[in-house]
Design a protein around this nucleic acid. Structure first.
Lengths: 196, 196
DNA sequence: TACATTTGTAAGCGTTTACTCACTTACTAA
DNA sequence: TTAGTAAGTGAGTAAACGCTTACAAATGTA
């Protein structure tokens, strides 16, 4: 009977959640399936979390920390808007590829989660991304590098489509998909919109 | 006891499916909930379809007919590539707004449906859209209207992000979202990419 | 060593799931 | 009028769902 402390188990459980979501889909995320994936009994899951919903909430909390807080350091850094945008895109795509389940949570559950707490948190993450991106674009315009006539909000919306379509692209180009290549191509197109 | 023929009921049931998906989410699409929405008993659902899966398959078949086949008429029509692209975008967005559940099916289920038949059909619709769009772009390039150095595939990928992010935008801009405005804004950005 | 605390388990709880079936009701055509 | 058929019903199924609990085993501390 292997015994691990609750912090270690919590990490294991949340990792297993993302694993199940990305490989089997949200509908297969049952507590039974989850326990099996971690390698413990169902009771053990409830030793460390009070409910299934609490697991997802904790997971989304982690996403906020790892993705949003991390991205904020890019905004603050002292680099050109162009490199900022490129770095922002690359970091985001890299994170979402390494945590595929997150994209599904963000885009499926945010639109109609049963639980409004979870939905609110997920929308917060999306809004935070849009705001950060807007800061980068406005910075570039103010510095006279990008077109001041650009519709900033529209650009941000179009940008957000990139993470939204990522999972589909991963399936359609299975095998040949290249992370860096993808980022470069998307950035090239974005630059064409921004340029004066 | 209201009696309707099977064709009428099938239409009702599939409409109810989209209704539930867009208003309550995929997880609430139970046969019990579905029967209640249609206003019949659960047994009646199984009088017209053999399984829940069969309902979804038939629904996706309809989407292919109504969306893909319809879009093909745009490709064949005798208008400039620019207007073709705009019409293509508008028709697609309009359809997805009127059938919100379709977007969720297309993008959530296509990535990890349990049923591979359904997944395959959904991916087919996505591929068909990409191919049609590619034809429009290549036409524009060949006619010397758009930049020949453009990465066609990358453009198509970026475009597909628009329907992918649509549902999120509908929630984030609830109340103020305007269909025509959205299409115009997105098209303006796309044109900036395409221009020489 | 003694004992409290933390972690893990197996069995089982009530509810919901997709689906079935024996039966009833409405329509159609001979 | 009657017989055949298509459509609808309500009670039921086994399996899966999220979750609980009584108890056992490992660990920390005295």
């Amino acid at each position: 009977m292997l015994r691990l402390n609750t912090e270690t188990r919590k990490v294991q459980i949340k990792k297993a959640v993302l694993d199940i979501i990305s490989n089997e889909g949200l509908s297969k995320l049952s507590t039974k399936n989850l326990a099996a994936k971690v390698g413990v009994s169902e009771g053990t899951i409830y030793r460390h979390f009070n409910s299934k919903k609490e697991i997802l909430l904790s997971l989304v909390e982690d996403v906020y920390t790892n993705l949003v807080v991390n991205q904020k350091t890019i905004i603050k850094s002292d680099i050109t808007p162009s490199i900022k945008l490129f770095t922002f895109l690359c970091k985001q795509i890299k994170y979402l590829i390494n945590n595929k389940g997150v994209t599904i949570l963000l885009l499926s559950e945010a639109t109609h989660a049963n639980d409004s707490d979870l939905k609110e948190k997920l929308l917060e993450i999306l809004k935070a991304h849009k705001e950060m991106l807007k800061l980068i674009v406005e910075d570039g315009i103010n510095k006279g590098m990008w077109d001041e006539n650009l519709d900033c909000d529209a650009f941000v919306t179009l940008y957000m489509g990139i993470p939204a379509i990522l999972n589909i692209e991963l399936i359609l180009n299975k095998g040949t998909f290249n992370h860096e290549n993808f980022c470069n191509k998307m950035f090239t197109l974005l630059e064409r919109i921004l340029k004066m």
